[in-house]
């Protein structure tokens, strides 16, 4: 009887342990996701059509989580995203990517760092471009 009882307890403890572990993993994931969203995204390109070769950049440097560029209206178009460090050097570059914001096709940089975000319209005709980055 006592052996059986001990077994039941150990099973319960094991189940509790598993639940606790799963809970902790979920909590850790939520905290991590929350930390990512603690940065607010903002747009630094205009909401009007722009010409090929036009580039945009943020007003200054800040801790970024991501920076992406894509054609916003009218289909696909080539776009590029970059980070510059405070010395003005390119520290990350997506190269030209075929993008369409509506289809979720974006040239996107990740990685936290104290950067200036930059993007460029690499298409051949005028269209509206969206460049979005984060800052605390």
């Amino acid at each position: 009887m006592s052996i059986r009882s001990t077994g039941d307890h150990s099973v319960r403890r094991s189940r509790r342990g598993k639940r606790l572990a799963v809970g902790l993993v979920v909590l850790a994931a939520l905290i991590a996701v929350g930390a990512a969203y603690a940065y607010s995204a903002y747009r630094y390109s205009p909401t009007s059509q722009t010409q090929p070769g036009t580039s945009y950049q943020t007003g200054g440097w800040a801790n970024r989580v991501y920076n992406y560029a894509c054609r916003e209206v009218g289909g696909y178009g080539w776009a590029r995203a970059r980070y510059y460090n405070s010395s003005g050097n390119v520290v990350a570059d997506t190269n030209s990517q075929y993008t369409n914001c509506s289809d979720g096709a974006a040239a996107r940089l990740d990685g936290n760092g104290y950067y200036r975000s930059w993007c460029r319209h690499d298409g051949t005709v005028a269209w509206q471009m969206a460049c979005v980055t984060t800052q605390p």
Partner: peptide
């Protein structure tokens, strides 16, 4: 993967 947290939503932010 927490490192992908923002990936799903970022293009939708503008679209």
């Amino acid at each position: 993967d927490p490192r992908l947290a923002g990936l799903a939503d970022s293009p939708r932010f503008v679209s």
